[in-house]
């Protein structure tokens, strides 16, 4: 019980089987999200990310399991959490024949806010997302990035404690994505908001999330800080080449093995040598240099490679992020999203 009261989101043994086609999209998933945390679900299309989000916010009924938001059992008291959660779907759900202000005004009204509150808060959020100047423009004239910003701004109109973002940067170009990331970080830094997002972009999970759950086929395969996940699959790798004869190099390598934090040293092909660091490969490089100087070794090249979330993903799912086959409806929806964004 104490855990439930102290966590923003607690999900216990969540299962979701779609009654229409019998597909088990979420299989016995449990996790919790701390207050003020950016928590991410990383996985390919059709992994069960959106289903999980939609079940937590009450758009879908779980087949089994318990969900607590802000300490409240959402299945027993759905009305008590209505104002706690904000949701931005992956589709940029804006009415493009209305202006930005009309969209946000209606959203406020659907949350039963008074006109004064809507006026005050919409100015606040629109300014925060850099859209105040364009509030009177029809959404038709908005770019994909602006639409996404407005979509997130709208989700904040009722001041939710917990924000759910389903694929916040789907289909956006890299600069726009970075700008959306900055807005998301700002929300957490300035307002201490708890954010739960899903993504199938590895860089996004790495850049934004305090903790990441890797999800595939409706199951969580791994869940931890991105850094920990990366170090679990092996330390940093340093590759080197030298300008000395073999015997001298070998003696040097023996010396290197005794340096702290060096896990192993191996000879690769073409006189390339590799060193696997226990941790902090970047701090190991100066040490390598100082040993080399003492031994009279000249280093011709040295390179540090850190494992990426990509490698982690590969390790856990046995595949790179792939385009999984979603339902036809989902695919059609995604096409519409892409068309709207790329316009």
């Amino acid at each position: 019980m104490s855990e439930i009261a102290n966590e923003a989101i607690v999900v216990e043994n969540l299962r979701k089987v779609y009654s229409s086609n019998g597909v088990e999209a979420v299989k016995n998933v449990s996790f919790s999200v701390h207050y003020g945390e950016i928590f991410g679900f990383l996985g390919p299309n059709g992994a069960g990310k959106s289903t999980t989000i939609k079940t937590i916010i009450g758009l879908l009924r779980p087949t089994d399991g318990k969900i607590y938001l802000d300490g409240v059992d959402v299945l027993k008291h759905p009305n008590r959490v209505r104002m706690v959660k904000g949701y931005s779907s992956q589709e940029s759900s804006l009415d493009d024949r209305l202006t930005a202000y009309e969209n946000i005004f209606l959203q406020g009204k659907f949350f039963h806010l008074s006109n004064e509150k809507i006026e005050k808060r919409s100015k606040e959020v629109l300014e925060m997302f850099g859209l105040w100047e364009r509030r009177k423009d029809l959404i038709e004239s908005y770019s994909g990035g602006m639409m996404k910003r407005l979509d997130i701004a709208e989700a904040l109109i009722h001041r939710p404690k917990i924000l759910f973002l389903d694929e916040p940067t789907l289909g956006l170009d890299i600069q726009t994505r970075h700008s959306i990331w900055n807005y998301i970080k700002k929300l957490r830094e300035e307002h201490g908001m708890t954010i739960f997002l899903t993504t199938h972009y590895l860089e996004e999970a790495d850049e934004l999330c305090d903790r990441v759950g890797i999800i595939d086929n409706g199951k969580i395969l791994a869940l931890d800080k991105p850094g920990v996940l990366k170090s679990q699959i092996g330390g940093d790798l340093i590759t080197m080449t030298f300008g000395n004869e073999k015997e001298k190099v070998n003696a040097f390598l023996e010396k290197l093995k005794t340096v702290k934090d060096v896990k192993s040293v191996n000879a690769l092909d073409n006189n390339v040598y590799s060193l696997v660091a226990e941790k902090n490969g970047d701090q190991l490089i100066p040490k390598v240099f100082s040993v080399a100087e003492k031994e009279g070794i000249s280093i011709e090249s040295i390179r540090l490679k850190r494992p990426t979330l990509d490698d982690v993903y590969l390790t856990y799912t046995g595949k790179t992020i792939r385009e999984a086959e979603g339902s036809r409806e989902e695919a059609a929806q995604q096409r519409v999203t892409m068309r709207r964004i790329r316009r």
Partner: peptide
Amino acid sequence: RRIGYLDKLLAAPI
């Protein structure tokens, strides 16, 4: 439904 507006409506306390 296509553009996700319906989900947004359903997620609101209306």
